[in-house]
């Protein structure tokens, strides 16, 4: 028991590693913001393209979406980071992570938006167009707000997945939170810094996970037994 406590919950080591962890947290947050922003905006374009009337736009988009949903994000990341240099394209770890995860998440967010857009009754855009709004105005002011409201829980849970995903950046030696924690672990032969990193992730993501559950809670139908 004492061995477990010393290995995983050594406060002194956590205090020593703290500055290192904070540096990593900064990278993790930056990365999360960049990837979520890119994913949310590219995803919208993807969704619009995948719902386009024009086949030459719709079909290739859907094919790409399926391609990027089929590849595990880590595979995509390693391909971008270790494979592209063979083709003469050397990206920094940060750019490699951003590129790989933005592609991956444009596909995922795209699917979420798509479901939301499909759920808005066609009468909505028809009546907006009939009142003289342009196609863009209709999208921005009538259709999109309703679509986003319908899929907010899914957008949120995808965002949780993206932030969890950033921990993979450590694999290509981007010095994010988990990378710093792992570095501290290998210097001290003690796992407490990783536990601390885990706690930081939980503090960031637990509120979001709770929020998603709140969204999904209707009246509980299950009777007491």
């Amino acid at each position: 028991m004492e061995a477990l406590r010393a290995q995983f919950f050594d406060l002194e080591i956590i205090v020593q590693a703290w500055p290192l962890l904070l540096q990593g947290l900064w990278i993790t947050l930056t990365l999360s913001v960049v990837v979520v922003t890119l994913g949310l905006s590219l995803g919208l374009l993807v969704a619009l393209a995948s719902l386009s009337e024009r086949r030459w736009l719709r079909w290739p988009t859907l094919a790409l979406v399926d391609l990027f949903r089929a590849l595990p994000p880590l595979v995509l990341l390693i391909f971008v980071y270790a494979g592209l240099p063979f083709a003469g394209l050397q990206l920094s770890p940060f750019l490699a992570v951003v590129l790989a995860f933005a592609l991956n998440n444009a596909a995922y967010y795209g699917e979420v938006y798509r479901a939301g857009l499909l759920a808005v009754p066609p009468g909505q855009s028809e009546s907006a167009r009939a009142s003289g709004m342009s196609a863009l105005q209709t999208l921005l002011w009538v259709v999109l707000p309703q679509a986003v409201r319908k899929v907010t829980p899914d957008l949120l849970s995808n965002t949780v997945e993206v932030i969890k995903l950033t921990s993979l950046a450590s694999v290509v030696s981007l010095a994010d939170l988990l990378y710093r924690a792992e570095m501290a672990r290998s210097l001290t032969y003690n796992s407490s810094p990783i536990v601390a990193a885990g706690v930081i992730y939980l503090l960031m993501l637990w509120p979001l996970v709770r929020l998603i559950s709140l969204f999904e809670r209707g009246d509980s139908q299950v009777p007491r037994h």
Partner: peptide, 18 residues
């Protein structure tokens, strides 16, 4: 809420020391 890599690293690198 926990990124799976965290428990993977803990169990694989941490437990042997305990």
């Amino acid at each position: 809420a926990l990124p799976p890599l965290v428990p993977i690293l803990l169990l694989y690198f941490g437990l042997p020391n305990a």
